[in-house]
Nucleic acid binder design. Structure first.
Lengths: 198, 198
DNA sequence: GGCAGACAGTTAGGTGGCTAACGATGATTG
DNA sequence: CAATCATCGTTAGCCACCTAACTGTCTGCC
């Protein structure tokens, strides 16, 4: 769990108390904010435990999923499905998809290659570029790992009904949109890629 | 943003598609899970930007808030308010409050001390222990920084009405409770501490 | 008294984030 | 054609997280 967070959230009355000293503190907003980070971290931690048990980190898993999507897409596209976007192949595309810098992706690919999950191959056309491919070992790993991973994430949400899930997604989307607005760029709305599910 | 995450979330139809291949994949659960991590990361990133602009990291800020709470509590307790819990003082207590290991806390206190925000003092009674205190510089920093921080977190939530915030907190609490159950321990219910608002 | 065990803080070594700067290659354009 | 600019991947160095092992100190029980 890379996210350093407070263990216990403050009681609502304490927020109210603090708001007297800090007029800028909006108690209900702060409460929602803290619970969002807390719950996100909790859910993240659960899936992290799963990954740890299989000796793979979140970052590495993310790269594997992005690459696996490429393979998967190629297959479904043959079946005539509308393409969900090209699968990433190069380190730069992977960095973009995983939302990290290219330097970080270099490090991730280093360790994945060291552990035999991935291979770097030179691009025949543009000699600046590389192509990153999954090894058979990685495909076996994903095939074994994913079902349990999906069960775990499903279990985190078992306490919510279908309509509660819809409501949650609606509220969270509002927050993400607002956040995107705050960083400057005009809302990177939705998604074109397919199963980059983690 | 220490949390490595996918940039774009998969479309719902793509989740449905993938569910055909993986019966364990519950599309609405996966959707909720992904949006939760996405929104949590977005909100976290916004406040991170704020901290970066002031040259302080999330981890360091967390420690400052825990220590500042001690001071704050001492003050309000004089005023007869019911105590919201003892403020953490020792590295071990701080590690517990910030949800990191003692080793990590050593590193955080190292850099905070180096930058003059904090001082280590020997405990007069138990020579194993230290007491960590805020310096005047840190108090000045927090006094200047917090109002803007509170405005930022409030702004993230401006898109939600009061009742939406209540709903969100309710759903997120359910998730946190479920997550706590899954890690083993019986739900670390709520919070005693006061303003460890981040 | 003395020794085993518990506990506080640190150290060492690994991972995964970041920025900044680099060399190599490709694209643009005067 | 050559200079410039953009882009790709990497490197170097920082920070913050982890686990495991260590040192020093207290506690408790023969």
């Amino acid at each position: 769990m890379p996210l350093l967070l407070l263990k216990d959230l403050p009681r609502y009355e304490c927020l109210l108390e603090s708001a007297k000293e800090f007029p800028d503190l909006d108690p209900s907003a702060a409460e929602a904010y803290l619970h969002l980070l807390r719950a996100g971290d909790d859910a993240f931690g659960i899936s992290q435990r799963n990954l740890d048990a299989h000796g793979i980190s979140q970052g590495r898993f993310c790269v594997l999923m992005l690459l696996w999507r490429s393979v998967h897409l190629a297959a479904t596209e043959l079946a005539g499905a509308k393409p969900c976007g090209d699968g990433p192949r190069t380190p730069a595309e992977l960095a973009e998809g995983a939302n990290v810098t290219r330097a970080t992706m270099t490090g991730l690919i280093d360790t994945l290659e060291r552990d035999g999950f991935v291979k770097r191959e030179p691009d025949p056309v543009d000699r600046r570029m590389l192509s990153v491919r999954l090894t058979a070992k990685a495909e076996r790993f994903l095939h074994d790992f994913l079902p349990g991973h999906f069960r775990t994430t499903a279990r985190i949400m078992t306490t919510l009904s279908e309509s509660e899930r819809k409501t949650l997604v609606r509220l969270l989307t509002k927050i993400s949109t607002q956040a995107a607005e705050m960083v400057g760029g005009p809302a990177p709305v939705a998604a074109e890629p397919c199963l980059n599910a983690l």
